[in-house]
Design a protein around this nucleic acid. Structure first.
Length: 224
DNA sequence: GCCCAGGGGGCTC
DNA sequence: GAGCCCCATGGG
């Protein structure tokens, strides 16, 4: 059986190699917390390049504010976020969050100031916010020590033989959070590095041969 | 043409 | 609770 401290060492080794390879990623790429929230919703199943275009449009229209998002006609919002795809559902999601925030006087700090567990549940209750989006908001907008799991993380963890590809979100999240110190900065940089690494490496590449995580695989499965 | 991108909701079984 | 399908633009 692998002791927890050994898992921690392995996870920290992965982190150090990614950090050495790519350097600090300085996430989240946004000017302020509300922009993080908007970006987290818009980037669902969408490349960040397309999200940048939508955010640029929102800023130009002075619409990157909760009140503005509420007041905009749906058709206008469609046009602003059109480049990032799924624009009809995403427009509803942005309005849903803006409507929810109105209950806090449009003050994100007030929303974020409550108990972490309750806050996460509240975020999940909002239309369009699932586990990854909620955790991205908690980590990158509210600076809470919450590890974000995404498709890249799942793929990399699977390739390294740490957990099965089919593991649930909560299983993956627990794996990281129970084997790493509760540190917001560490979680921030770690997830950003996993995404960076996921983008840099070929999806179909067998294992991690030739990449910076080479020979960290505990149970090699060629051709995975 | 194909595949996929920093997911989530709704529906079925 | 798992397995589908739908949402849609833009780049490789």
């Amino acid at each position: 059986m692998v002791m927890s401290s050994q898992l921690e060492q392995r996870l920290l080794e992965i982190y150090q190699r990614l950090l050495s390879r790519y350097g600090p990623q300085n996430w989240w790429p946004a000017d302020e917390p509300f922009e993080v929230v908007v970006g987290a919703i818009l980037t669902q199943a969408t490349s960040w390049k397309n999200v940048e275009k939508a955010i640029f449009n929102l800023k130009k229209a002075d619409a990157l504010r909760p009140a503005a998002l509420r007041e905009l006609e749906l058709e206008e919002l469609y046009q602003l976020i059109y480049p990032c795809g799924f624009y009809k559902v995403k427009a509803l999601k942005l309005k849903a969050f803006a409507n929810h925030l109105a209950g806090y006087g449009d003050d994100l700090d007030r929303l974020f100031s409550q108990d972490l567990g309750e806050l996460r549940q509240e975020l999940l209750s909002i239309y369009g916010i699932g586990e990854e989006t909620a955790d991205s908001i908690l980590l990158y907008a509210a600076n809470k020590p919450v590890f974000v799991i995404d498709a890249y993380t799942r793929r990399i963890v699977s390739r390294l033989g740490l957990l099965p590809q089919a593991s649930s979100y909560s299983a993956l999240q627990s794996f990281f959070m129970e084997n790493l110190p509760r540190n917001t900065s560490l979680y921030n940089e770690y997830h950003a590095l996993l995404v960076r690494h996921g983008k840099e490496t070929c999806r179909r590449a067998p294992l991690c041969q030739g990449c910076c995580l080479k020979n960290l695989c505990s149970s090699p499965r060629p051709g995975l």
